[in-house]
Amino acid sequence: MTTTHVAAPPKPRVAAPSGMSIGDLARRPETGALIGTISVFVFFAIFGGGQFLSAGGAASWLNVAAELGIIAIPVGLLMIAGELDLSVGSVLASSSMTVAIVSGYWGAPVIVGIVAALLLGLVVGFLNGLLVTRTGVPSFIVTLATLFGLSGLTLGLSRVITGTTSVALDPGPQAKQLLGTLVAGKFEVAIFWWIAAIVVIGWLLHFSPWGNWVFAVGGDKESARTTGIPVQGVKIALFTASAFGAAVVGVIQSILYNSAQVANGQSFVFNSIIAVVIGGVLLTGGYGSVVGVVLGTLTFSIVSQGIYYTGWNSDWAALILGVLILAAVLMNNTFRRMALSYAPRMKKKG
């Protein structure tokens, strides 16, 4: 469809392009997430003291945030499109084992191992997407099946091939530099990959015309289909992206720690969903933002790392997270309602 831009500027009574007032801010999907991030930061800055605020402290939660964030952003996009992906944990484990087995155990060049691991991620994601769109089985079930199936496959094959469940890897200097080094001795290079993902995916979702499709698919699948959007294609692409994100983190972990274990990554299944939901994405789809997911990821990692700086028993971190999830979702609901009921400056009639 071609849309000509010659049309005269909209004539009557169009609201002036408003700046960022407080009201506008309150109507954005990430407002609740921003409040959450600032609150937990201030909380741990007070109780965690100078150690938490030092570069080392920042590195500890940024490193966690980076790995989680690379997975959470595509998972968030998928959730905006109305689907869940629980399989990321097993995809992470299988990709990290793949690079370790191909390049460590079999001794192939590390680039071959990396490509194999990433391809594996793409294939699993594509299959997830295909299964969900073709069978109509809810993605919760399909990806739960993938989570277990792939985890068993990884464990089984690892034992058959290597005889163990943990494989060492010598990635060599180049791969190390690109994917597994610590910048300034503290900050994982993954942080920069995370930033790259934020920029690219943020652009795709919020500025490219394609992003509109993602919101439409999550908002109302049937209406989206009647407008001619390839609903299935969009979903398959998003499932593929989410598994790819998990595969990238799997590779990063293998190269960073010079080894891979079959049990890697299972914590990412729920952590990614927590980060996305705290970030203001609606679980049922149609609403959310990349900035929100980033803030949700930061909130999660500040809580999970900040607890170590308070001197309290770290057992309590999960309790804080639980309370936080509930509070964040309630707050996000409130802000979403405000956005929905918003009508610009007008007199109320009768």
């Binding site: 919101f215 439409a216 908002g219 407008t227 001619g228 959007i229 609606l282 609403y287």
Partner: peptide, 13 residues
């Protein structure tokens, strides 16, 4: 689409 802006939903697709 209830949670999309008027402009965005007008031009979906």
């Amino acid at each position: 689409f209830p949670l999309m802006t008027i402009g965005r939903s007008f031009f979906v697709g």
